[in-house]
């Protein structure tokens, strides 16, 4: 982990007149998985949205591939390689899987659509079996996979995932984590917010801990996992819990 994929320099961001994330600085390294941990309302989703550009940026720099991107609209960031899968069901429910995939190609030149869809559909065989099903009729896990696939069509080098396993069965959560690992192995840098902190830490290289909008702690995932404060606050103390 030497190459810098993303650098946040004292980022303050939020909604309307309310900054939620305050003076947040962090670095993500190329090809690694970083977990963003924090309680409810700590500002995790706000930080991801700030990196993708769908909320209000107050101050600070977001440096991606040597370029400051904090003033760019989301579609420009997407074109540069920042992909974001928001929390909750984030697809087009009354469109088929095929149409959703076509929408995923929105920023690509028309000539590349077929090849991009072919490539991503090969990585997620489930999608082909549901090709003509409306996205709204897929299971929660299938929708999550579809959403990740839609973003991977444009080959982002940074993937922001907001609660990918939320509301999924333990089995499906495991599948999603495996998928995230597969994606990272192709060289994509991943920043993931997860309610399943234990599971996320197990697949992550590094972890960022956020409290009340500020960076509270950062380090290798293995260290953060064993930190007593983190165990107490996010991993349920001593209670034995199987990781996904």
């Amino acid at each position: 982990m030497t190459d810098l994929a993303l650098e946040l320099v004292s980022v303050t961001a939020g909604y309307g007149d309310n900054p939620i994330v305050r003076e947040f600085s962090a670095r993500l390294y190329a090809g690694t998985i970083t977990t963003l941990i924090g309680g409810n309302g700590a500002g995790k989703s706000t930080l991801l949205r700030a990196i993708f550009g769908t909320n209000r940026h107050f101050s600070g720099q977001i440096v991606f591939k040597g370029e400051t991107i904090e003033q760019l609209p989301p579609w420009e960031r997407l074109k540069r390689g920042v992909g974001f899968v928001p929390q909750g069901r984030c697809n087009f429910p009354a469109m088929t899987v095929e149409e959703n995939m076509k929408m995923g190609c929105y920023t690509l030149p028309a000539g590349r659509h077929v090849a991009a869809i072919e490539r991503v559909a090969n990585s997620f065989p489930m999608l082909r079996t549901k090709w003509r099903t409306d996205a709204g009729n897929l299971s929660g896990g299938e929708q999550q996979i579809l959403e990740m696939a839609m973003v991977l069509l444009v080959e982002p080098t940074l993937l922001l995932l907001d609660e990918p396993s939320l509301g999924l069965s333990p089995k499906m959560q495991g599948d999603v984590f495996v998928t995230v690992q597969q994606v990272a192995r192709t060289g994509v840098t991943v920043l993931v917010v997860e309610q399943n902190v234990r599971g996320a830490l197990l697949i992550s290289d590094r972890a960022l801990v956020m409290e009340q909008g500020r960076l509270f702690m950062e380090g290798p995932a293995a260290e953060v996992r064993t930190d007593p404060r983190i165990r107490q606050a996010y991993l349920g103390g001593n209670i034995k819990q199987t990781a996904a």
Partner: peptide
């Protein structure tokens, strides 16, 4: 249709 069905997903795909 996309934007009418899910505004955030529309931003997600650019």
């Amino acid at each position: 249709r996309a934007i009418a069905q899910n505004r955030e997903a529309a931003l997600m795909v650019g």
